[in-house]
Computed example of a mutant assay.
Amino acid sequence: MNTKFLGTGIALVTPFKSDLTVDHEALANIVNYNIDNGTDYIVVFGTTAESVTVTKEEKKAVIKTIFEVNKGRLPLVLGIGGNNTMEVVQEIKTTDLSGFDAILSVSPYYTKPTQEGIYQHFKAVSEACPIPIILYNVPGRTSKNIEPETTVRLANDFENIVGIKEAGNSVSQYLRLLKDKPENFLIISGDDDLALGVVLAGGAGVISVIGQAFPKDFSEMIRLGLKGEAKEAYKLHYKLMDVIGYIFEENNPAGIKAVFEALNLCNDTVRLPLVPATNQLKAKINDFVKGL
């Protein structure tokens, strides 16, 4: 089992200044804040990073900042995915992956491939990728579920496919994966609200959005869950439960950026077509942060 990805990974935001340029100082602060407070690994350029609206040059600069701040302290995972298989393969082949421990690759979106199409897509990704791959199933965004049978088939057929970030928000699907997966394959929760239950049922941990704002409590909750200490873990779950709901109320990452603004770690700027959280949502988030 790839133990680098046990525990709490975070889906890192890309902080922007009010003029929409990348805020590298805030980025460095958020990375250090997570390293200092118990986060186990960092996912760079997942959905939460607004990766579709960040240019290639900006991505290189963000990666440079993260490398300089991290200094090899935590494992790093890079998001590389899309709905054009040849383009994804080309990106993998032309990206310097030497500083990364794995890639996170989202299932093809918009085009709605069949299960066989999803399998063949990830077969091509696997054959092109020199480092481990974590699949990413998020049917709420892709409009197509990776069925558990397809995940298990990929896990059995390709050695470098080491896990899945499962964000189908379906308890029964998590349990099916945990029951049928190969022994060393990682089932990683992509649903912050279900993460503890998944871990207690045998999951490897979480790639979290809220975890980056409250890394001490969230990573401790997952650690307790991995040890089977449900009662203590659920105390932390209930402590954070309201804010987990708040950050997904309008859109992600506007919600998590509103939390970071309340914590004075970055401002709440997002790039269109996303817009910042409404004043009503910000008021709830500010009250939660003050109460904490």
Rank of each mutant, 00 (worst) to 15 (best):
K181T: 06
P276A: 10
N32H: 13
K181Q: 06
G7S: 12
D101R: 09
V199A: 11
R223H: 15
I188V: 09
P139A: 07
D40Y: 02
F67N: 13
K181V: 05
A254T: 10
V31L: 02
L6H: 14
N252E: 03
S172C: 11
G205C: 08
E261N: 04
K284W: 00
Q173R: 15
A230Q: 15
E147V: 11
V270G: 02
D192F: 07
A11E: 03
H24F: 14
V259E: 02
P276Q: 01
N286P: 00
L76I: 04
M241T: 11
Y119S: 12
L175A: 10
T39H: 02
D268I: 08
E25R: 10
P148M: 01
V289Y: 07
T53K: 05
I103P: 04
T21M: 10
Q212F: 02
N252V: 14
A213L: 09
K60V: 12
E183Q: 14
L154R: 08
I146H: 04
N252T: 15
A262Q: 10
L265Y: 11
P132K: 08
I188P: 05
G82C: 11
F248P: 03
I161S: 04
K179V: 12
L97C: 03
I103R: 01
D36F: 07
A28M: 01
G202H: 02
K290N: 04
S170D: 15
S18N: 15
I222A: 09
K239W: 01
K4Y: 11
